[in-house]
Design a protein around this nucleic acid. Sequence first.
DNA 1: CGCGAAATTGACGACCATCAATTATGGTGG
DNA 2: CCACCATAATTGATGGTCGTCAATTTCGCG
Lengths: 240, 240
Amino acid sequence: MHPVVKKLSTFASFSKSEEEQVEHLFSRTQVVADKEVIAWEDEPAEDIIFVMEGFVHRAKMLTNGRRQILAFMSPGDACDRGVSILDRRDHSLVALGEGIIARVSHQKLEALLTETNKLRDAFQWATLVEESIAREWITNIGQREAPERAAHLFCEMFYKLRAIDQVEGMSYRLPLTQRDLSDAIATSEVHANRVLQALRAQHLIAFGDKRLTILDLQGLERFAGFDPTYLHLSAKYRQT
Amino acid sequence: MHPVVKKLSTFASFSKSEEEQVEHLFSRTQVVADKEVIAWEDEPAEDIIFVMEGFVHRAKMLTNGRRQILAFMSPGDACDRGVSILDRRDHSLVALGEGIIARVSHQKLEALLTETNKLRDAFQWATLVEESIAREWITNIGQREAPERAAHLFCEMFYKLRAIDQVEGMSYRLPLTQRDLSDAIATSEVHANRVLQALRAQHLIAFGDKRLTILDLQGLERFAGFDPTYLHLSAKYRQT
DNA sequence: CGCGAAATTGACGACCATCAATTATGGTGG
DNA sequence: CCACCATAATTGATGGTCGTCAATTTCGCG
């Protein structure tokens, strides 16, 4: 199934013709290399970018050289719905590992959404979930300690990726360096390393070869204080 | 001018008739008391809530008793655009000081937006700016130290409130306790107190009687590493 | 005036950043 | 195929920022 359809199917189901409409929109794809910058901060925002394969992250650089990763986007995710209204983007988009993206003009997407309200709702749902995740990141970074933050992120990714069939058994591909992880959970690189060791020592996860394995999902969730409600998954994707 | 029109005017200008359409939508208002919970976490999301006067904040509670404030909303702000698509809300809305809110049904708002695209764009712009602010909060909490975080927040509020004429001279009403502030910038209450003292000692701000005064805007911005770009203000509201 | 909430202060220790150095890894070319 | 090099991961030591506990003072309001 087309990644965007797959993603939206976690919210609603679509007819064959609706699927084809969506697929047609994303005909123009592009391969991106690991660490390739897809869109720069301060650049005027033009097309909307969708992830077809692999991962993309959103990041901000500070004047003091620090970096904060704001989100991880996986297949089917839109990177910037409707950002064209704003003058310029306030963050960059960078590929994590090799991937495939599609660029869609704002006009074309709007045209499709005006046609079918079911699709408009589905995209709206995706946007709202993304906002909800951003709020959870604020909470995670603000109120939890580093090991809990990492554990929480791994739980989030697990549920998100499982809903789009990107989980095999209890493990999923996660092409992050420890530095990437540290910029996502707002710790130093050194501390991220120690956090990972602690989680491994507690037999909660394994992480290597760009792959994360959850050894004890219940334990990891309990440790992180994770509650998947904020992902607004439909019932069939919610169970542990 | 009506608060919602005032707020949207920072993005576009409206005809008399457009203004009246908006005003008509918000006829049903309601007074809320300090600390009054306007909408509970886990509650199904029904109407969209707009702030007419005063402040509202968005917050999440964790199982361990901690609280993270996710946003401060001021007159003209919508609290939850389109949240009715989601099953239930994932955060609460609480009044900060006495205020006035309006509840608008999703249907009525949608009907108006379908009529005039200019309004749809304006609301869309407001939503996008709110998302941008959420991303900046992630960055702020993740990458800056506590005094810088507080300073950054005060700068943000200054620009946001100035655009809707809620700033007098260099000061604005900010009905926060130090505990509220600490839950917004993710520090302990004790540390928030010390942070405020430090900012005062550097003659950057004054804070008392629920009012924040910026004594040295340039200095505060420099200290915080503040860059107002992410607020996406039109040129006339951007200058220091 | 009196009460509870809010602000303030001090002491102590935990978590985590930073610096610095070492080991492992993975991709490249001879 | 292996030597080589840059990148990534790991380890140890040290100190700063900040959380927690506990007590006191101030403030706001009836």
